[in-house]
Simulated assay, not measured.
Amino acid sequence: MTPAPASFQLAEHITINSTDGGAVLLDKRNGEYWALNETATYMLNGLTAQLDDFAIATSTSELFEAPIEAIELDVKRLRSTLSENGFTKSP
């Protein structure tokens, strides 16, 4: 897998609150919220720590004992879904 773009930041209007087994993202512009499960929360933490997608997929795959191919797609989907919905800062 090719490393992801160097920078990932959540937009200022997004807040993260931890929950039992995951997290909730709140878009303060419109009150919309997204619940993330434990796996997605782990991946999001990797993104916000500026890890590349391959490093996130590798550690997630090992921790959750899941096939790395599936996790690689999940990391890519999470990154693009957050971006497409205005949850990230534009480069």
Rank of each mutant, 00 (worst) to 15 (best):
L73H: 10
D74P: 04
N45C: 07
T19L: 08
N85I: 02
L25M: 04
E69D: 15
R29Q: 11
L51E: 14
G21A: 06
G22T: 07
E84N: 07
N17R: 15
E38L: 12
Q50C: 02
G46C: 03
S59A: 14
L63K: 07
E72S: 09
T19K: 15
A55H: 06
T41N: 09
E32G: 04
T19R: 14
N85D: 14
D52Q: 10
N37C: 08
S80R: 12
N85V: 04
K28A: 09
L10P: 09
N17E: 12
S18A: 15
W34L: 09
L26P: 02
L78P: 00
Q9V: 00
L82F: 06
K76S: 01
N45M: 10
S61V: 10
Y42W: 03
T39N: 05
I71D: 12
E38R: 08
N85L: 10
L73S: 14
D74M: 13
D20S: 10
K28H: 12
E62I: 14
F54S: 05
S7N: 12
L51D: 05
S61G: 13
T48R: 11
L73E: 08
D27T: 06
A55M: 06
E72L: 10
T41Y: 04
A70R: 13
E38A: 08
L78H: 06
P67E: 14
Q50K: 02
N37P: 04
A49S: 09
T48S: 13
S83L: 01
